[in-house]
Write a protein that binds this DNA or RNA. Sequence first.
DNA 1: TCTGGGGTCCTAGGACCC
DNA 2: TCTGGGGTCCTAGGACCC
Length: 343
Amino acid sequence: MPMAQAQKLAPALLVLPPDFEAYSQASDQVMAILEDLSPLVEQVSVDEAFIDVSDLPDDPGVIAARLQARINQETRLPCSLGVAANKLVAKVANDYGKGSRKGLDYPNAITVVPPGEEAAFLAPLPVQMLWGVGKKTAARLKTLGIETIGQLADAPAGLLGAHYGKWAADMQRHARGISDSPIVLSHTLKSISNETTYDKDIGDIDEVLHTVRWLSDKVGYRLRKHHFCAGTIRIKLRWSDFTTITRQVALAEPTNHNSVIYDTAAGLLRAAWQRGRKVRLIGVGSSNLQEPAVQMSLFDPGQDKETKLLNALDELREKYGKKVIQRGREVGRQSAFEEEEEE
DNA sequence: TCTGGGGTCCTAGGACCC
DNA sequence: TCTGGGGTCCTAGGACCC
């Protein structure tokens, strides 16, 4: 495969300060360094990214060493890198390097897996290091006598297929270090949600509804900030015994209005409510995100008014801080924005 | 640890339509 | 009218990841 010639790095930053601002600043700084090297950067999370350096003239191991030195110097932060022909192996290589440097100092490892040696590199490692294999799957594989990635690669296809169906073939390809998942330059948001866990379990539905209102405001604010409307609203409810349910409903018309989100979520909560049971966690979520239609509701001028009002409030919130603005009917309860630390 | 928060993807079943 | 197949959408829940 000609693709196997491509070399990709998966740098993972380990950022130490438990201080959010420093955290995201450092993240931006590192991403800028990566983009300076190549435009083919995929940011996976605040502290992880893939970069495709296959078009650069130098040896990928050398590039990695230079990159790490630059990050160390410019951000004063350690970082670990994995180098391999595809993202999957680069990720495992990076995790492996980080893990083996645990202890004295913060991981600042570089692990290179040369093309063609993917399967051999992976073989002795525990299956759980494979992307997509977590605790549950690892435990099930163990009952089949499979504990290392190599054993997974060599397992009879029929045996795996019987237990994992379609997923079995993918899992086995991954175990052999084969993956063609491309670098994705920008990820589009699929859902936006907020949830909260109570200090003590709550048996009063009004109190939970109060929280739902607050969470709905947060979700609405974030939807508007990202210029999205949601086609589906969802609640997540964890009872005191830790059983968790979700309830969702598709809207007739997508929205990013706090009031519509709240009314929908409150309806779902009332329908799912069981008197006598107590709640540990409540969440409000939105999905099926889409761009707002230009002519929202021709026949509902009230909605248009609400849009304008919300936009005005959002602007004031951004300008003067979170505490200033509360709608009249909301006064007396905690604003969703008092402790907002949104990017 | 008696269990934080915000995401993604996959599967399965039911409703509905042709 | 009944039966069945197949496609699609929606909902619920599980597993996993950072």
